[in-house]
C-alpha cells in the first residue's frame, strides 16, 4: 500500500492517503466503537459470522484491533521510505532486462530495508501497546483475550498492584528491546 502510494499517480490518491491516515488522527474511542459496530452489527460483521469468522470478543479480535491500530503507522513509514528511493533505480534495472517485480525485489527492497525494518519495529511496538481497540473489540477477558496492557489494566482493577507493575515493566522492557534491536540492525545495515 505504501509502495503504491509512493510510486503511482491515480485519481483519488489524496483521498485514499487521507483515509489511510485517518485512524492516526481519529478520536480513539470513536474508532474502536466503529470497529465494534463494523464487525458486530453491520452486514459485513454478520456475513463474516455466518462464514464462521467471529471477530468480536475473540482472539481474532485482538489481531484485528492490533492491525487497525498499527497499520496506518506502518503504511505512513513505508510510504515515506519508498518515496525516498529514487524511481530511476527501478527504471535502470528494467532497462537492463528485469521486470517490474524483479526490479522491485532486487533494487527497491534492499534500498528501502531501513524503512522496512523501522516500520516492522513501530508496528510491533504499536501492536504490543494497543489497549483501547483490543479492550473494546476483543473484550479483555481474563486468560482469554488478554494482552499485556489488558493484564495491566485488569490487575489495577483488581487492586493487584504488584502484577500491574510487573506487566508494565515487561511492556517497557519489550519496547526497549525492540528499539535496541532496531538501532543495532540499522547501524549494521
Amino acid at each position: 500500500m505504501g509502495y503504491a502510494m509512493a510510486r503511482f499517480h491515480f485519481p483519488g490518491k489524496s483521498v485514499i492517503k487521507s483515509l489511510m491516515d485517518l485512524p492516526i488522527a481519529f478520536p480513539e474511542l470513536v474508532l474502536r466503537l466503529c470497529l465494534l459496530l463494523l464487525f458486530g452489527q453491520t452486514p459485513v460483521g454478520k456475513a463474516m459470522e455466518e462464514a464462521g469468522i467471529r471477530v468480536v470478543f475473540t482472539k481474532l479480535g485482538i489481531v484485528v484491533a492490533q492491525i487497525f491500530t498499527a497499520l496506518p503507522y506502518a503504511a505512513r513509514i513505508l510510504y515515506s521510505t519508498f518515496e525516498s528511493v529514487n524511481p530511476r533505480y527501478e527504471l535502470v534495472s528494467r532497462s537492463l532486462g528485469y521486470g517490474e517485480f524483479e526490479s522491485f525485489k532486487n533494487v527497491t527492497i534492499p534500498l528501502a530495508r531501513n524503512g522496512l525494518f523501522a516500520s516492522t519495529v513501530i508496528t510491533f511496538a504499536r501492536s504490543m501497546g494497543a489497549f483501547g481497540a483490543v479492550l473494546i473489540l476483543a473484550g479483555g477477558s481474563y486468560m482469554n483475550t488478554e494482552t499485556l496492557p489488558i493484564t495491566l489494566y485488569l490487575n489495577i482493577s483488581y487492586g493487584n498492584i504488584g502484577m500491574a507493575i510487573t506487566s508494565g515493566i515487561v511492556l517497557v522492557v519489550l519496547a526497549f528491546l525492540a528499539i535496541l534491536v532496531f538501532e543495532k540492525v540499522e547501524g549494521g545495515l
Binding site: L91, V92, R94, S95, L96, G97, Y98, G99
Partner: peptide, 10 residues
Amino acid sequence: LPIEKRNVSI
C-alpha cells in the same frame, strides 16, 4: 513494448 523487452540501455 515493456522497458525490459527493448534492449535499450540508459
